[in-house]
């Protein structure tokens, strides 16, 4: 598989798995308004995943659904940050905030890519991410002095660094006011992914080849 396809799958997998995780809050977010907003953001991330999978699919002679659902858990390229099954709002918001900041660094680099297709898609995604960042920064600002939120950020920080390439990490650290530490790298999945995969692909596996 080309380096480009690998990169596209890593990006798409991050967006799909985080979108899936965040959608687990639908119906139980802390307020009704946040429920609508958070679900909408989760849906947007899955839309970004679709666009990225389609770009990869053109190269791999596949399609977006097959790439999203027909691979084995070990074949996914997502960062461990997005896999974690977080059961409380402080961690969930800490992850959104850290992910959005990391994603901004990543998209800024992709927008300058020589690959015009990828650069164009990154710019399109970034326009929507502006509102995700507004949402994440609003929450981070509000919870900044809450011990539970600060602990969650510290706990997830090595995972957040693992979203980015090593050379991009100092920029992320600068943005969030932390220092670079050993990252929880991409490649080795957390046990949470297999569990999520089981649920996420259940319908698709129940009727292989069916169209919906």
């Amino acid at each position: 598989m080309s380096e480009r396809a690998q990169q596209l799958l890593a990006l798409a997998d991050d967006e799909l798995i985080l979108g899936w995780r965040d959608s687990e809050w639908t119906g139980i977010a802390p307020t009704l308004e946040e429920d609508v907003a958070f679900s909408s953001i989760a849906q947007n991330e899955i839309g970004h995943a679709r666009a990225l999978y389609e770009l990869a699919a053109a190269e791999l002679d596949s399609d977006a659904d097959a790439l999203a659902f027909d691979r084995q858990p070990g074949e996914y390229r997502c960062a461990p940050l997005v896999e974690l099954h977080l059961m409380d709002w402080a961690h969930t918001i800490a992850r959104r905030y850290l992910y959005e900041e990391a994603d901004r660094v990543r998209l800024d680099a992709l927008k300058k890519s020589d690959d015009s297709e990828l650069a164009g898609l990154a710019a399109k995604i970034d326009r929507e991410e502006t509102y995700h960042r507004l949402h994440a920064e609003m929450w981070a600002g509000r919870l900044r002095d809450e011990p539970r939120f600060r602990e969650a950020v510290d706990e997830l920080w090595p995972y957040a660094l693992g979203v980015l390439e090593p050379e991009q990490r100092p920029e992320l650290a600068r943005r969030v006011g932390l220092t670079v530490v050993d990252a929880r790298e991409r490649g080795e999945h957390t046990p949470a992914l297999a569990e999520l995969w089981d649920e996420m692909t259940e319908v698709r596996r129940s009727a292989p080849g069916a169209t919906w």
Partner: peptide, 20 residues
């Protein structure tokens, strides 16, 4: 309407509820 702690939250939430 939206119920929010301040204008910033109202902005973000109203965008999603009435403009997405």
């Amino acid at each position: 309407s939206v119920v929010a702690p301040d204008a910033a939250f109202a902005d973000a939430w109203a965008r999603e509820q009435y403009g997405r």
